[in-house]
Amino acid sequence: MASQGTKRSYEQMETDGERQNATEIRASVGKMIDGIGRFYIQMCTELKLSDYEGRLIQNSLTIERMVLSAFDERRNKYLEEHPSAGKDPKKTGGPIYKRVDRKWMRELVLYDKEEIRRIWRQANNGDDATAGLTHMMIWHSNLNDTTYQRTRALVRTGMDPRMCSLMQGSTLPRRSGAAGAAVKGVGTMVMELIRMIKRGINDRNFWRGENGRKTRSAYERMCNILKGKFQTAAQRAMMDQVRESRNPGNAEIEDLIFLARSALILRGSVAHKSCLPACVYGPAVASGYDFEKEGYSLVGIDPFKLLQNSQVYSLIRPNENPAHKSQLVWMACNSAAFEDLRVLSFIRGTKVSPRGKLSTRGVQIASNENMDAMESSTLELRSRYWAIRTRSGGNTNQQRASAGQISVQPAFSVQRNLPFDKPTIMAAFTGNTEGRTSDMRAEIIRMMEGAKPEEMSFQGRGVFELSDERAANPIVPSFDMSNEGSYFFGDNAEEYDN
């Protein structure tokens, strides 16, 4: 993207840094990872977990959730003011799984939030270390993106479920800051804005008074975040219109849905970061690795190297396929839920299948599930090659597409044709070009129609051997075009429920 120079890199967003050079960025990201790792080690000690239990991804998720809940100030305040039966607002906890007599047992633990905050700050040299908290939120978000298709949420806001490739980060909490905003897809931002506008339509006082002023500035800020994701002048001009509207209503909703559809071809720039579970960072720190000293990046080879040398386990339900569970977590670790499966298959070195073909449910185990038949197995999170994460949407291309997802959002900077089903997408653009945004709409449609099938995206960008740390010898991959490109292809993934 041309304006790259004016933006802070995501590592800076990730670490609240002012302008830093590459070495400083690597050190501050490393410091953040160190903090998460030290916190995780301490929690495993508190909970008396064995090494194996500490490497269980379900335990990692519970521990991450506990610290996120302990620092969720708004919710904590709300819980104190609106006490609900049987919930102690000062405590947080969740299921911890232990191996007892050759069987997995679930144990519900409860801790004072104050105590968890103390352990977290102690692991982070006394700081609140917001960057580390956001990092864990993005890992949870990436896992949700890989596990669930947001059909219901899309339909509720009037969008087409086939636009799911635009929904990265749709389950990120509001408090995820600049680093969170960077990884949100165009569809996620559109959905947040539509929800806001709908509230304004239904509630006369939404934009009024002292609160209304705050609401208005939040609305304009979200519009600017979305505008910054678009790469064409016409899309940005249309966002200006939406932002400046005196009284946002149905016309703005129409414009936003139009823009979301246009992003299936004229893709937005959305950041991709490899955020790993805390149970990967903990053992690495415990083994003596100093992330701050060595430096770390979320968008280069580092996460690949770390996963190459990590042992992570997962509980497996009786009829689940461990290899499929591994694929789910591998995609989440690489922030690749909406990437082209052919690119992923090449990088991973084994075939990556669409969601609907995987015999696996989510990673988390519900409290009512029976533990008797639970097994555990090693997650295979290694890769054959590594590639640089991208934040450009890439230019655009036609490809055989599917009944489910009709476009992709690249996660890796790797040369390819970008699949999208042009006739299906263009069919949504018939007729409606009147109104105050008509010239911009016409211009956007013209650009979409001009998108050429034979153009290559990320020209000359390749993948790298894991021994090639400096990215000196790019390998331009070859793809098996007979395979499906979309992950949520004609899909039956479970729906995400809060």
Rank of each mutant, 00 (worst) to 15 (best):
G17M: 14
M191D: 02
L154Y: 03
V270Y: 05
G362R: 07
W104T: 04
K48G: 15
K98W: 06
E114R: 02
G393K: 04
R118V: 06
H140R: 08
S467C: 11
N59M: 08
R384C: 13
S367M: 11
F304L: 13
I116D: 06
G460R: 15
M136Q: 12
M105K: 10
G288N: 08
R195Q: 06
R384S: 13
W386A: 07
D290M: 13
K31E: 14
T390V: 05
N144G: 11
G212K: 12
E369V: 09
V270P: 00
F206K: 08
S269H: 10
P277C: 12
P474F: 01
C223P: 08
T378I: 10
D491I: 03
S359F: 04
M191S: 06
P248V: 11
E64Q: 06
T157V: 15
L276C: 13
P410V: 05
S60A: 07
T188E: 12
M189D: 02
I96S: 07
R26I: 07
P322I: 06
I138F: 10
N432H: 13
M196D: 04
M1Q: 11
G209W: 03
N59P: 04
T171Y: 00
M137C: 08
N498G: 08
M32A: 02
R461V: 01
I225Q: 07
V109Q: 15
Y10I: 14
G282C: 09
N432Y: 13
Q231N: 08
G200D: 03
E449W: 00
S367Y: 04
K325D: 08
A284R: 15
W120V: 06
K293N: 10
E465T: 00
S310L: 02
P322G: 07
K293T: 11
Y281L: 05
I388A: 05
R221V: 03
Y52H: 04
A373L: 11
H82D: 00
G450E: 00
E369T: 12
E80F: 12
R261D: 09
F258C: 11
A286S: 11
L79F: 07
A251K: 07
T23L: 13
F458D: 01
R317N: 07
P83F: 03
T6K: 00
A286P: 03
I347E: 01
I347H: 03
I265G: 02
P318D: 06
R382F: 02
I347N: 10
W386V: 08
V363H: 01
A2D: 00
I201H: 02
G435R: 10
T62G: 10
A237D: 04
M13C: 08
L56N: 15
G435F: 07
Q20S: 14
G93T: 07
G177W: 03
R117C: 13
G180E: 09
D127Y: 06
E434R: 04
K357Q: 10
R213P: 03
M238T: 07
N202M: 08
E14F: 04
T390C: 09
N492H: 06
G94H: 08
G177M: 12
H324E: 03
A442E: 03
L108G: 12
Q149E: 05
N202K: 10
V186N: 05
D88I: 04
P453L: 13
K90M: 13
M1T: 09
S9T: 11
E294G: 13
G460E: 04
A260K: 03
